[in-house]
Design a protein around this nucleic acid. Structure first.
Lengths: 206, 206
DNA sequence: GTCTATATGGCGATAGAC
DNA sequence: GTCTATCGCCATATAGAC
């Protein structure tokens, strides 16, 4: 029964995704994944030969989803500040729903960067391909900023405050969870404003 | 011999620091720490009763060092943009020397945030204490920006590009390590410029 | 395909000699 | 304080019945 296979495989993948993201490769336990998927531990090995293979499957899938979303936004034919706005909105929501995600990705990739290039190609992400169109657009709209700076500063301001939630929540909000969340949502606007103001400084005088 | 004790204890702490930062709590092996310290595995347990205690010792010490550096900068009596410059310089260098650091801190704290408040007090960091002076200074210099935004955006832009090195190095520099490093150093200036331009937008018109 | 039972290895921790 | 030897546990992985 291919139907049933598909069902079980998906349940495993979903459970594995949750556990791996929360606990990391080393911290995750096959038993916990099996429990969460409502199946037996040895079935994991039946579907995915080893923990490592299961992990790679999960990580590649996640990166693929994230990458494709980014691609869609960058290719739209709108002003740069509207791309910024779309990006901030989309990723803030994504990160609020998956607070462990950035840490997980960074962590696992940092500790095992060897397979990264393969992962990108598996996930259909072409490094460097989006930077040149961005550079053209910035120039066309009259901003002399280095596109690398532009991209990284934006990514940083969106991702970092969510990735570092526990620290930031205590350091800036005395541990108040709802105050933190409210603030992160408010950043959807304030980041766009901040970027807009910064861009003003880079405007080429005519 | 207290001299010898100190010596061994420090060797252990140093080795543990390196291994924990690189591998994380779960990934680290007591054997590897012992090897790196040039001693026997059971000596680890003689000095620090368990892996967990050793880990806590290491993490608290790291946070203490980082926190105190930040405190010094914030308290200096200079213009806000000069504080930004000092912060960017100091932490860029620190992070280039310890690229695994931010990931390590985020990761371990995210996965076990319970002891964080204790850790801050052990490390002599007083959450929230630096935000009010900063708010006053921003207002005094005529900038109407939310101090939380100001701090977080700065932290983000400094830390994120180093924390996410493997991804960024491939995504933006086609894996070229020296191009990446050169770029990170160049950010010492470009971040300050970016912040300065952004602040201009927040200047209260007189 | 799915289960139970078990093999296999590795790791943290301890005992005990020196 | 430092070592060798070893315990006991737990996690991944496999064998084999159904």
């Amino acid at each position: 029964m291919t139907e049933k296979e598909k069902h079980t495989e998906e349940k495993i993948a979903e459970a594995a995704r949750e556990v791996f993201i929360e606990k990391g490769m080393d911290g995750a336990r096959m038993q916990e994944i099996a429990d969460k998927a409502g199946i037996n531990k040895s079935l994991l090995h039946y579907y995915f030969r080893s923990k490592e293979k299961l992990f790679n499957f999960v990580l590649s899938k996640i990166m693929s989803i994230i990458g494709s979303r980014l691609g869609v936004i960058m290719q739209e034919d709108v002003a740069i500040i509207d791309k910024v706005k779309a990006f901030v909105d989309l990723y803030t929501d994504l990160l609020l729903k998956n607070p462990f995600l950035p840490n997980f990705i960074f962590n696992e990739i940092t500790r095992n960067p060897d397979g990264l290039i393969d992962r990108f190609s598996t996930a259909n992400i072409k490094p460097g391909e989006f930077i040149k169109p961005l550079e053209r657009q910035l120039k066309k709209e009259g901003y002399s900023i280095n596109p690398h700076d532009f991209v990284l500063n934006l990514l940083s301001m969106v991702i970092f405050p969510v990735a570092g939630r526990p620290i930031i929540q205590i350091l800036l909000f005395e541990g108040d969870s709802s105050a933190y969340k409210k603030y992160i949502v408010s950043r959807k606007e304030s980041i766009v404003t901040y970027v807009m103001y910064a861009l003003e400084g880079y405007r080429i005088k005519q």
